[in-house]
Amino acid sequence: MRTHTSTDARGRQTGRRHPLASIALITIGLLSTGGAYALMTTTASAETSVATQQSVNEGQKIFAANCATCHGMTASGTKDGPSLYGVGAASVDFQMGTGRMPLAYQGPQGAQKPLQFTQEQIDDVAAYIASLAPGPAVPDEKYLAGDADVALGGQLFRTNCAMCHNVAGAGGALTEGKFAPSLKGVEARHIYEAMVTGPQNMPVFSDSNLSPQDKADIISFLKFQNQHASPGGVDLGGLGPVSEGLFIWIFGLGAIVGVTIWITARPN
């Protein structure tokens, strides 16, 4: 018993990780707290300057016609919708780009709908909102390619995301009718924007919490999961033991009971 634990101990001197991995992680962490943050703010300001005044004006018009009822004419918020100061272009791109905004009805949670605007219109509104106050910008393409560290991304995903979205990204229930949506087929850009902006009741994963590289890892992991069909066959929705149990009762036992009836039926 005792000797057993001591052999285990040797195997576990470093806890769950290899010491080199820790160093690598610390480096990434430092990057996230320092350099990456600077990088991020510069990209944000660059974005604002690039957006032309014409685009901002166009965006303001679309905003006034479609969004102002709830968010107010100056986007400062009303009792029906929050202020949009500082939410940034990323938030607009996510909310409108996934069809969540404009809301169809007031409910526990805005639902995904078919898009109501072209990407150009969304970009205009994003430019307008970004012009009001600095906020997270639309992410850089280099974080969205899905070529980062899949295994590390998986670990980050399980620690920070799987509790709500499920390990297979199948989604899950929250309180009072809210839910974490399925991540299957969601564009990398929208996943990144959701992490940065924390839409609805999702927490914000700022760059000081998950660095852009961490986010790229998570996106790579999700892409990896999406790209590969389950090696075992049909995944039954990735819902785990509940769908497996229903399947064996209905189809497994159902088929076999069918066979028993055939066995005991008398041929003509």
């Binding site: 998986g154 670990q155 499920n166 199948a170 819902l239 033991p241």
Partner: peptide
């Protein structure tokens, strides 16, 4: 599911039927 780690958890954590 990944290896066991006491901090993470998955939504829809259920036992077999």
């Amino acid at each position: 599911y990944g290896p066991y780690d006491p901090s993470p958890i998955s939504a829809g954590t259920q036992p077999d039927w």
